[in-house]
Simulated scan of single mutants.
Amino acid sequence: MTDYERPLSFGVSLDPSAGAWGRTLRIARMAESSGLDHLAVQDHPYQPGHLDTWTLISHLSATTDRISFLTDVADLQLRPPVMLAKAAASLSVLTDGRLQLGVGGGGIPDAIASMGGPARRGQDMVAFAEESLGILRTALAGGVVQLHSTYHSVDGYRAGPVPPEPVGLWLGAQKPRMLALVGRSADGWISPLNLYVPPHEVPSRQRIIDEAAAEAGRDPRTLRRVYNVTGVIGAPAEGPGLVGDVRRWVDTLAEWAVDLGFDTFVFWPATDPERQLALFADEVVPAVRERVDALRSAR
């Protein structure tokens, strides 16, 4: 049982498909008006039907006022960390701090190579990601970036502008070496979808993060824990991921908060996204907040 007792937050994943643009805009506005915390956008630029993540977020930021954006997750092998920091800092300034930066080492090497990327794998990818996190952190703080290594050559870049609010560096990770990197160097963990990291596999991954954080002299309770959750609320009775009525969703997400340690849930509707978002924001989210508060108070 793991509860880091962090405040809960909730978001929805937006479809970056060019053909779904109108619906994506409606969902973004619905999410903000419903009080959700995050709009999450995946980053697979090698998909010919996908809009570019940064272009999409930048456009949506001009049509919203409060809700935060989350890259879920930006591909470090296709977005050099110095330029990624520049883009993130710029967007944070333009949105008054409405950005969290989810990043990943690059999980589809062949697709990355198809766009001219280096397609790193294994320990090579982990080492590259670790250096990239260091560059991102220095650049986002407005420092001078100077690094010459196997992976990066940055000769005294003076970073800026400085974001008005800290931009969280949340790392997407699934395997042990990347999970340990979360604990050592990131501000939080973004878990892949519950289809790929099912609940019964979460505790072992949380332990890897916590042990690495403790070894690095960090408090594991300071790290965010984000679960990407796909499924269907209500009918139909079948579908991928978490499927069931509102009560089952409330029971399950509350359990995943207090027993698995997640503080942020990003909903990926498996069907009828506008109706599903309404159910999630209006019925599931407030009930989960209330349930978790009650469970924590009882302890």
Rank of each mutant, 00 (worst) to 15 (best):
G134Q: 05
R121I: 06
T230V: 12
H59E: 00
A139F: 09
G35F: 12
L8R: 14
R221Y: 07
I27F: 15
T71P: 06
H50R: 05
Q276A: 04
K175Q: 03
H44N: 11
L279D: 05
A141R: 15
Q174M: 13
V12P: 05
A139H: 11
D210K: 08
H44S: 11
V202Y: 14
I57V: 11
L8Y: 13
G188D: 00
D3G: 12
R299I: 00
P166M: 10
A88F: 04
S13F: 14
F262W: 13
P161N: 03
D43N: 11
L70M: 04
E290G: 08
L223T: 02
V284I: 02
I57T: 00
G261R: 03
S132V: 02
G172A: 05
S149P: 14
A28Q: 12
D52L: 12
D210I: 09
F69S: 02
Q42A: 07
W54R: 01
A173T: 03
V41Y: 05
S92G: 09
E130Q: 15
I67Q: 11
R247V: 13
W268P: 05
R26G: 08
R299W: 00
R218Q: 07
Q47F: 06
V250Q: 11
W21L: 05
S17A: 10
P16K: 02
Q123E: 10
T95H: 05
L253F: 04
A62S: 14
P7D: 03
L136E: 05
L14D: 13
Y157S: 08
D15P: 12
I209Q: 11
A31I: 06
A287K: 08
S114R: 11
D96G: 12
